[in-house]
Amino acid sequence: MEDSRYSIQEFIQKTKQEDKHQGLFELETSRLLEINLNGQVWAKAGSMVSYRGNIKFVRERMLEHGLRRLFKKALTGEGTSLMKATGNGKLYIADQGKKISILHLKDESLIVNGNNLLAFEQTIEWDIKLMRRIAGMLAGGIFNVKLEGNGRVAITSHYEPLTLIVTPDNPVFTDPHATVAWSGQLKPDFVTDVSFKTFLGRGSGESIQMKFSGNGFVVVQPFEEVYFSNDSKG
């Protein structure tokens, strides 16, 4: 009897694209997002893996969202740009093999670390949030994007994300480099611990932690993101 294991046919059967009929955003795999495009979405520039149909890609123009956001991007050293995908077809996007999570905002707001934002519907309002108290304290800087309204958002994380519930009597502290997102009603504060840096293995500067108080949630990942500014990418 012929061994059918590892045949091309078996490989195709296991890995071929399947329509799951889940709407605009659907997870083709845990690390590959399928967008059933009929109009326009915003996605992380350079995230396109494949597409079929009639889709055009336009990189975010410098002044597309006004001088205020351009000024914020310059201050934060933000190295992630957006692109518009417009048309009809199936678009597949990913970001360095990171795990993808889809969230449906329903008159809600979410703050996402810019490095963990993959895509969102055009119905979502967004703005870059400056973190003035931490500016210049971390190499490459950290910027966050506030998303609010109605629509779907796709975020990424290295490995499985963990969501921590925040209550007034139980604040949560996180490493900024491992913080993925948090609910919009939370306003993080920043605290430093000189002694804690010894345990983190940091060679210089104070250990910077984010403190979340109030009611909401924080999403973290078991990985410390490395940030690059536009100048450091070469």
Rank of each mutant, 00 (worst) to 15 (best):
M1A: 14
D3S: 08
Y6Q: 11
Y6I: 13
Y6A: 13
I12Q: 12
Q13W: 04
K14H: 13
K16G: 01
K16M: 12
K16L: 08
D19P: 07
K20H: 07
Q22I: 04
Q22K: 15
G23T: 13
L27Y: 03
T29M: 08
S30I: 11
E34A: 12
N36R: 14
N38C: 04
N38Y: 05
V41P: 02
A43V: 15
K44E: 09
A45Q: 14
S50W: 08
Y51F: 15
Y51V: 12
I55T: 07
I55G: 07
M62I: 06
M62K: 10
L63C: 01
E64L: 00
G66F: 04
L67K: 06
R69C: 01
K73G: 04
K73Q: 06
K73L: 07
A74K: 14
G77W: 02
E78Y: 00
K84F: 04
K84A: 10
A85H: 01
K90H: 06
L91F: 00
L91G: 12
Y92A: 04
I93G: 00
A94Y: 03
I100M: 04
L105V: 09
S109N: 09
I111Q: 11
I111N: 13
G114S: 14
L117Q: 01
E121F: 11
E121N: 06
Q122W: 00
Q122D: 14
Q122L: 02
T123Y: 03
I124W: 05
W126R: 10
R133L: 01
G141W: 01
L147V: 15
G151Y: 05
G151Q: 04
V153S: 02
Y159L: 15
L162I: 15
T163A: 10
V166I: 07
D169A: 13
F173R: 02
F173M: 14
T174K: 01
D175P: 09
P176V: 08
P176L: 09
P176D: 12
V180P: 03
W182A: 08
S183K: 12
G184W: 06
P188H: 03
P188N: 06
D189G: 15
V191Q: 05
F196G: 00
K197A: 15
L200P: 00
S204Y: 14
E206N: 14
S207Q: 11
Q209L: 15
M210D: 02
K211F: 01
N215S: 13
G216C: 05
F217K: 11
V219C: 12
P222M: 04
P222V: 02
E224D: 14
S229M: 08
N230S: 11
